[in-house]
Structures are given as C-alpha cells and as structure tokens.
Amino acid sequence: MIRHLFTLIWNRKRSNFLLMAEILLSFFVLFVVSSLLVSNFYNYRQPLGFTPENVWEFDVDPGQDTTDRKATLRLLVQELQATPGVAAVTWTSSNTPFSFSNMNTDEYRYKEKKAPLTERYDADDNMVRVLGQKVVAGRWFDRRDDAAAHSPVVVNQKFAEEMFGDEAAVGKIMTNDKHDQQWQIIGVIEAYRSGNDFAANEPALFDRRVLQDSGKVGNTELPILLVRVQPGSGAVLEQQLVRKIKQVTKGWDANVNTLQENRQDKMKFMLTPLIALGLVGLFLILNVALGLFGVLWYNINQRKAEIGLRRALGATGNNIGRQFLGEMLVVTTLGVAGGLVLAMQFPLLGVFGVASAVYVQAMLLATVLIFLLTAICAWQPSRIAASIQPAVSLREE
C-alpha cells in the first residue's frame, strides 16, 4: 500500500512538489512561532524569585534640593519603618521589579573567566525582608558586612552556574579587568526574574549599598523606596506615607505604585507581541487549510475517471477515502521532514538563545499541528471521493 502511494505521488510529482513546499514553509513558520510561544510559556511557569504582593514602590524625586540626600533618606527610611502598617522598607536602584530600567554589566572576572552579561541591582540589608528572596546558600547582607575586606555581593543560581559551574559560589572573590576592585560572594538566591512574568531567569547580582556609609547620593540618582505593607492596606496608609515623605524631606515629590500594578502594566506590554504572534500563526493555519482543501478538491475533480475505474474493479468507498487520506499524509510527511531538517539548525546555532528542550517541544507542536491540519482538510474531500459512483464518473468522462 505504501509503495503504491509513493508511486501515485511520483506520477503527480509536479503538483505534489508544490504542495510539499507549501507544507514545508508552513511548518517552518509554525516552528518559529511555536518556539517563541513555548519559550515564553516555559518562562511564565518558572518562579519569580520574589514576592511582589503587598509591596509599594515610592519614586522619590528630590528635585533641586542640594542638601545631604543620604542623611535625609536615612531619616525617611526610619520614619517609614516606624509607621503602623509598614512591615519593611528598602532603598534600591531604578531597575526595580517590572520596571523598564536595566543595569547590565559584564565587568566581573574569576580566574580570568569573564562573567556573563549580568543584571546588577543595588540592595541594602532589608531588601530580603521586603521582596522575600529565597537564599539557598550563604546569607543575605547584614551588619557583619560593614567591615568586610571585599565588597559583598549576592548572586542568583543562574549566575553561579554560568560563572563557577559545579563549584560552590559562596566565598568566591571576583575582580574586574583592572584588578582594582574586588567582590566577595556571600550568598546565593534561588532566582530573580524582575523584568516580567515572561522573562528568562538570567544571571543577577546584588551589590550592597547602605545609607550609613560615606558619600552622598549623586544628583543624577533618584532614590527608589520599596515598602512592604500589611495585607489589606489601602489608600489611607498610602496617603499617610506620602504626607510623611513630604514632611521629612521638606517637599520632595513622591509617586507611588504597587508592584502588582507595575506587573499588570508590564504584562499588557509583553502580551501585545505574543498576541500578534498567535494571530500570525492562526492566519497561517487558516490559509494553509484553505489551500490544502482547494488542492484536494481539485485533485478529486481531475481524478474522477481513476476513482470510477477503481470502484468498477471492486474498490470500496472506504478504500478510496483511505487512499486520498494516505496520499495527503505521505506528502505531509515529506514536507515536514524537510522542515525538521531546517528546524534542527536552530538549536545547533542557538538562534533564539533558549534551551534545547524548547526547540524540541516546538518541533513536536508544529508537527502535530501540521498533521492534524492535513487530516482535517483531507477528511471531507476523501469522503466526497469515496461517495463517487463508478457509473457516474465514467459517464462524465
């Protein structure tokens, strides 16, 4: 039967070649779309590495105030911390969770090995209380680091794996290209995906910055305060905190958002291209379905004499239907095989920079979609072919 199907396909190789090319191209596009969608779905299911619920972000703007900003911030953090309903307060850099700000660097070295591109965050001793990062090795910053010989840092597991492999990261001392700065890793957290819910778990490093050390906050630095509040806190506490900020800072502006609001805004921003990809894939599937249905319908009309002759020789309607369905599945297999050859180059070249498992899942998804689409499109024309009576088809010829 298989040999017979290949013979029929070869005899109509010109039309079948165009059909295989269409299937190959459709498979390839579906694979690309599936790779991106599977990758984002895989990232979405990974832990964020922190708890954004009940955390408010205060964007404090000193404006033209040239006083000692660090002293003002120290007093402000103390006052906010003492406010009923506030659980913890931290001072950090502008690349807060779900923001549109980044601080990437690759300056770190260990035994001449260059670190991967890493997102760096400013953190103080209270950040772990505010965001709830899970420390899996070592510890978070505390007062023991005040007299540290090297600048203490905390990294996530992704950074530790890429930088040190199977070696323990805690205690390692890193330097820069000029060897004039040194950082010592004192702790490792599980993960930290602060960009958005679809962000990959990229290398991250937290650099300790406390308000008690020397120096002032630069004029270009706008302090960001993250405040963990008690569950159920609302507008009353928010207004109270804003008033306290203005009183302590003598007029600094303060804008407040919850991390959950920032998360929803970032989600909408990220969903737009994903929805567009989904619509592209849906439009492609619809066009392929219409094309396949039209080709099969045309083949049936062109092969009525062949169908009538087979029916006259004793072939049943089911035999005719299975033949057309089998031909379509063989053509689809040949087209998908060519598409798989192209798709296999993606993990080898690391085109999208995702895990190999994502490419494999995308290949399987695209293959299933193409075969399912082909079977659905071939089902109705095959039924029509099976219902053709030999006397009718031969009389028409």
Rank of each mutant, 00 (worst) to 15 (best):
L364M: 13
L25E: 07
P62W: 07
R74K: 14
F58R: 02
V341D: 02
P116R: 07
M267Q: 13
L373W: 05
G308P: 02
L75I: 10
W10Q: 12
V170K: 08
V170R: 01
W183M: 07
I189W: 10
L342Y: 02
V341S: 11
M363Q: 09
M174A: 11
S99V: 07
I9A: 06
F269Q: 15
Q264M: 13
L36E: 00
A343Q: 04
N219Y: 10
A200G: 09
G215D: 10
V368S: 06
A254Q: 08
E107H: 04
T66H: 06
L334A: 02
K178T: 07
Q157P: 00
V256Q: 13
L325V: 11
P390F: 05
G353D: 03
V210L: 11
E327G: 00
V130H: 05
V60N: 01
P52H: 01
E327Q: 05
L117W: 12
V217S: 02
M103A: 13
L284W: 10
Q247D: 15
A305M: 09
L329M: 15
L241Q: 03
F206E: 03
V55S: 01
V256Y: 03
D59R: 14
R120L: 14
V29P: 00
F50Q: 00
A204K: 10
L365D: 04
E57S: 12
N287R: 08
E327P: 01
Y192M: 01
E79A: 14
Q64M: 11
L279T: 12
E221S: 12
F17L: 15
S94I: 10
Q240A: 14
V29T: 10
M163H: 06
V331H: 00
L80S: 01
A87R: 14
G317T: 08
K178I: 03
S35A: 15
K13Q: 06
F27T: 06
I320C: 09
A235G: 02
Q389W: 00
L313R: 08
Q81K: 14
F141P: 09
S151E: 13
L75V: 12
L365R: 12
F50D: 07
T96H: 09
N176L: 04
G321S: 14
L394E: 07
A337F: 12
F31C: 07
D65I: 06
L394C: 07
G234S: 11
I307Q: 01
F6P: 00
V154A: 09
L48Y: 10
L36Y: 09
Q182M: 09
I307H: 05
S94A: 14
T51M: 06
A71R: 14
G338Y: 03
V351P: 03
V236T: 15
L131G: 04
V55E: 05
L334K: 03
L76P: 05
N104W: 15
N102Q: 13
G291K: 04
D124R: 11
L73I: 01
R310I: 03
K111H: 11
V280K: 10
E162H: 08
V227H: 02
L284I: 15
T258R: 10
A357K: 11
D122I: 11
N54I: 00
L274F: 06
